[in-house]
């Protein structure tokens, strides 16, 4: 009995191990299939022509496949969204964690949840019917623009930034906050010079998650970006980020065109990995000097 029991235990442990390894297999499969499908096109077009090419005309008689304007658009819209979203999100997090009375904070918190429960396609539709005409009317241009994308993405990554930053601000040990007050610091001085630096890692990881979401966002973007393949000269110009390119043209693409779209996926994949690595290195530099408090995350929001 004992022996069969032990065998049974071992077998179940192996099943558990196998389940855990599925994530590894999936990651491998995703990478391999993405590269297998996208690489032939990149090889044929030439990596340099593909990444730095300025013309995207896959169905012309003399087709060209350059995605540089799309890489630029992805980078610009993400950067814009982060610049817009971080001050707002951080303010809201500070408000919830330290400034607002707790009854008010308890009212605001569900609103943040509400903001995160709006699906991206709904954001996109709201952008198409409300924000785009507003931009067109008051700022000029077609309305479908880099600005519309930036505004939408900024709102979409807000909940991520607010929630995680708030959690890490709350995790700051109360002793050092009291110490700051005891030394005569005002509330805002305590917040900006003690709490935010102490919660640095958590705030940074919230921004990283936000960036990941902004770069990969598709459905909201495709409806408001205008999809013209060009380097925007102002925020009112139309753009086409990489994600929009993939979703826009997949359904009708012939095999080679499709392969080029998978190639766009590869570049997007590498782009996200590169952003993560760069930020990791930067965060190592920044938080290396400060005390860091690891946030306790009860619910990780979607990334």
């Amino acid at each position: 009995m004992g022996i069969t029991n032990r065998k049974w235990e071992k077998a179940v442990e192996l099943i558990f191990l196998f389940s855990a390894l599925i994530s590894v297999f999936s990651l491998a499969a995703i990478t391999v299939y993405l590269f297998a499908r996208g690489f032939p096109a990149i090889r044929e077009i030439g990596a340099i022509n593909f990444i730095f090419g300025m013309e995207w005309n896959p169905t012309a008689d003399n087709p060209s496949y350059g995605i540089f304007p799309m890489i630029y658009a992805s980078a610009a819209s993400t950067a814009g969204a982060v610049i817009l979203s971080v001050p707002v999100g951080l303010s809201a997090a500070v408000l919830l964690a330290a400034v607002a009375p707790s009854c008010l904070a308890n009212l605001i918190r569900p609103c943040v949840d509400l903001l995160s429960s709006i699906p991206s396609v709904v954001y996109g539709y709201f952008g198409l019917t409300v924000i785009v005409p507003l931009i067109s009317e008051y700022l000029g241009g077609p309305g479908n623009s880099l600005l519309a994308v930036i505004v939408l993405l900024a709102v979409m990554i807000l909940p991520t930034i607010i929630k995680i930053s708030e959690n890490s601000l709350r995790a700051v040990p109360v002793e050092i906050i009291r110490g700051s007050y005891a030394l005569g610091a005002t509330k805002t001085e305590t917040i900006f010079k003690v709490m935010i630096p102490a919660a640095g890692t958590g705030i940074l990881s919230s921004i990283i998650l936000g960036i990941g979401r902004a770069v990969g966002e598709t459905m909201a973007v495709i409806l408001v970006c205008g999809n013209a393949v060009q380097i925007p000269r102002s925020v009112l110009d139309m753009v086409r980020p990489m994600t929009a390119n993939i979703a826009l043209e997949m359904s009708y693409a012939d095999p080679f065109h499709e392969s080029a779209l998978f190639g766009t996926g590869i570049v997007l994949f590498i782009f996200i990995a590169a952003v993560n690595i760069i930020i990791n290195i930067l965060s190592g530099r920044i938080t290396g000097r400060n005390m860091s408090v690891q946030p306790v995350l009860k619910n990780r929001t979607e990334g």
Binding site: I208, I277, N280, S283, V296, R300
Partner: peptide
């Protein structure tokens, strides 16, 4: 510890 599950970048771990 549970606090370490959070995502702090793809390649960290």
């Amino acid at each position: 510890d549970p606090a370490r599950i959070n995502l702090s970048g793809c390649f960290n771990r």
